[in-house]
Design a protein around this nucleic acid. Structure first.
Lengths: 290, 290
DNA sequence: ATCAAGATAACGATCTTTTATGATCAATAT
DNA sequence: ATATTGATCATAAAAGATCGTTATCTTGAT
């Protein structure tokens, strides 16, 4: 007496029948013949010794047992699909290199960890750099992917999400905001935050001075928390030591920036495709909020 | 391109191979031929395009992928088996009658609810009565099953669990325990609690009087909570309004009683078998504790 | 009466299991 | 060491069962 076991393909047609409430439509969807689906349903009923469906007039209706089995079928198939794609994912091998702005290095580790769980055989290298530099590297195929910040509606790459920029200072500081405004900025060059800040101040007719520059937020932090300068960050980068400044501070409003994903010009490798997908899924959340 | 779907029978042999770490043994367990199991394993590997096992010397070892799949297989099969037995259980129909002592009516509802979930097509009737009466009814096949209380090591039926009996009074009462002890007892007749109590008092040379009698605990409750009498209950029947009395009260210790399941003499119906099983499982918990 | 959907029958192809056999490895004897 | 034995696993070939298709029939709705 062998253990009774469902044939998952039969359960899949059961689900298709339920979804379409028609044998013929289910057959079309599954690329079977109508008669095949009809017989598959009968086979299921025979194996369980239950009648799963009734036919009143032309309409097909499931019995209580049918509905019950449907639930089991959905659960089983979900587990099956998950198991299958897990096994496939583990087969994917290769190496890929992703570029990210330094400041986003803190945002991504959980994504990397998840990626490694899903694709343990893929060697992932992460390189940090300024957005402008990263874009060039992707174009030169030195990177497979690059996640960069840019001003709104700039061309190139796919937008992953948009984020509001805010002025910020140390939590307990009340900075003197008379001109010239003391700014803490990233290293000179094509930095988006810097561009945005300077454009906004200029448009507002304000004056400013660069009180401090550094390669990354980490370097700027001491100055900012000490209240010696204000900084521009995305809202998601605010830490407990940083306090955002609203309009009452007198500083001009800042526009949104975009987080965009650039891909190397050649057709993306499978690992690159997957990582791109994952980044989109994982980071897509806080988009147009304000 | 049809959706990729596992063959659960193949996964079952995978598990058997893992459990026995031998193709031959797995074949024996599954009532297959050795070559069948060998080929089934290969088929699985072919379908996934992965090698699941390695052979170093004579020993069979799973690869990392094999172990991974094994996990999925176990989960899928567990779900399959659960689904299957659920579908079978729903097929079971019939009626059955269970007898229980009145005081246990409060203990069982969750079991009945669960039973109805598992076997919705079974009509369950519950009849209350004294243990002695219930036993007679089962013997006469007027009941399919009877759950009764009895003194320890009495014959007949299967012991479901043993429970300590305790003396109890109202929470805030300090009853006068000088002879004759005022007892609140069930209706005269073959009641186990009464028997046990009277035997214990007699053995201790104490005197008592029956201050109140009723068909059930519900009727006794007012007298007891008012402190006019002490009552005998199982520990599991203690409510927030009842306070158990320990040895310091001067009352003699009470023995354990047993909860036993009696079955009608004829071969039990399938529903009766199932309910019996369920009762055993669900009530087996607090057995010999003290 | 006609049309569309579902059920049934018969056939053919494919896949699965078995029987039979060969290969490999470990252990024991020579 | 070498040979032999025993056992396990893999492979080949054949029988058998199963599943899907084509074709046809039935049934219900317009």
């Amino acid at each position: 007496m062998r253990a009774p076991t469902f044939d998952l393909t039969l359960l899949r047609t059961l689900v298709a029948i339920a979804d379409t409430s028609s044998v013929t439509a289910a057959a079309k969807r599954l690329a079977y013949t109508q008669s095949t689906v009809s017989m598959q349903l009968q086979r299921l009923e025979a194996q369980l010794a239950v009648s799963l469906h009734e036919r009143d007039g032309r309409r097909l209706r499931f019995t209580a047992e049918g509905e019950r089995l449907l639930g089991h079928a959905r659960r089983l198939l979900a587990l099956n699909d998950e198991a299958w794609s897990d096994m496939q994912a583990r087969q994917i091998t290769g190496d890929l290199t992703l570029g990210i702005p330094e400041d986003y290095a803190s945002l991504l580790p959980s994504v990397f960890a998840y990626f490694h769980q899903l694709y343990p055989a893929v060697g992932l290298t992460v390189k940090c750099g300024t957005s402008a530099h990263l874009v060039e590297q992707v174009k030169a195929s030195e990177l497979d992917l690059a996640l960069v910040t840019r001003q709104r509606n700039s061309p190139g790459g796919d937008v992953i999400r948009r984020e509001p920029l805010v002025w910020a200072v140390g939590v307990h500081q009340q900075p003197s905001l008379s001109d010239p405004i003391p700014l803490a900025l990233y290293t000179p060059g094509a930095d988006v935050f810097r561009e945005v800040a300077e454009q906004a101040l200029q448009a507002a007719g304000r004056d400013w001075r660069v009180a401090y520059t550094s390669q990354s937020m980490a370097g700027l932090a001491p100055i900012v928390t000490a209240g010696l300068a204000v900084v521009v960050v995305t809202r998601s980068m605010l830490t407990p030591t940083l306090r955002p400044l609203d309009e009452s501070s007198g500083l001009p409003a800042l526009p949104m920036i975009e987080l965009a994903l650039h891909r190397a010009p050649h057709r993306p490798s499978e690992p690159a495709r997957r990582l791109g997908e994952l980044i989109r899924e994982q980071l897509a959340a806080p988009s147009e909020a304000l």
